[in-house]
């Protein structure tokens, strides 16, 4: 937001703007102080946001750069109401990277009410199964773990135990000492996070490892940093995975 643009707003509009952007300010700030504060904070937010972007993303972003005022309201004033949620009970599972996946789900409204009033209700959980090399029958996963969820949740970022494996997840309700699967997702694959040890005789040579070293030398961010996940921090009920054995 340029100074010139902010100067066109009165102090109450500036305060609204600051609140909308979660910028802290004091009621005693003069207009000039408020503007300086907003500009400073917005610049910080912008720098923070841009820091994590790789060059291809930074350059691509410039395609959409028209003005210095980033928070321009959309010129298209059309109103496009879209549903908050959809009918049908289902869960969709999506791979994000070797260590993280995203699940979102919907419940049929009738089923949702019934679940909320389930007699003897104990817990609602997201159960993640490792199904590598498995034709899953509901019980035979290599291992599984539960993530407790609430009725008002409708999505979750899930930390995957292993790259190079297959997973699916279920929503499970626990009540009166028993469990029932509400819905089951598609199977996803978590990609490998390093160079394979496997090779065919025909496609290997004395130079291969050296070539791989040359690529590694230039390609620094080979393995994503699983610690740097910026969204939800989750905790597993069971922290003792049964390690997957090939």
């Amino acid at each position: 937001m340029t100074k010139e643009r902010l100067n066109q707003l009165n102090i109450s509009q500036l305060q609204d703007f600051a609140e909308k952007h979660k910028i802290r300010f004091s009621d005693s700030f003069s207009k000039a102080e408020l503007i300086d504060n907003i500009i400073e904070e917005l610049e910080e937010i912008k720098q923070e946001r841009e820091q994590e972007n790789v060059p291809s993303v930074k350059i691509e972003e410039l395609k959409y750069h028209i003005a210095l005022d980033e928070e321009i309201e959309a010129q298209d004033k059309g109103v496009y109401p879209i549903p908050e949620s959809y009918q049908g009970t289902e869960i969709i599972f999506i791979t994000r990277d070797p260590f993280w996946a995203f699940a979102y789900w919907t419940f049929d409204s009738d089923e949702f009410e019934a679940l909320k009033n389930e007699p003897g209700f104990e817990a609602l959980v997201l159960r993640v199964h490792d199904v590598k090399w498995i034709d899953f029958n509901g019980k035979n996963s290599n291992f599984n773990f539960d993530i407790p969820i609430q009725f008002n949740d409708d999505n979750w970022y899930i930390n995957l135990p292993h790259p190079d494996s297959n997973y699916l997840c279920e929503i499970v309700i626990k009540s009166n000492g028993s469990e029932r699967v509400i819905c089951s997702s598609n199977v996803i694959y978590s990609p490998k996070a390093d160079v394979s040890d496997e090779s065919d005789e025909k496609w290997i040579s004395a130079g291969t490892d050296k070539i791989i070293d040359i690529v590694r030398r230039e390609f620094k961010s080979f393995t994503p940093d699983m610690e740097s996940f910026p969204q939800r921090i989750i905790s597993f009920i069971s922290s003792s995975y049964i390690p997957y054995q090939k």
Binding site: K192, V195, S196, E198, S199, I204, T208, I212, F222
Partner: peptide, 9 residues
Amino acid sequence: MHGSKKPKY
């Protein structure tokens, strides 16, 4: 580089 086999080249 992270494919199913070690890439020869």
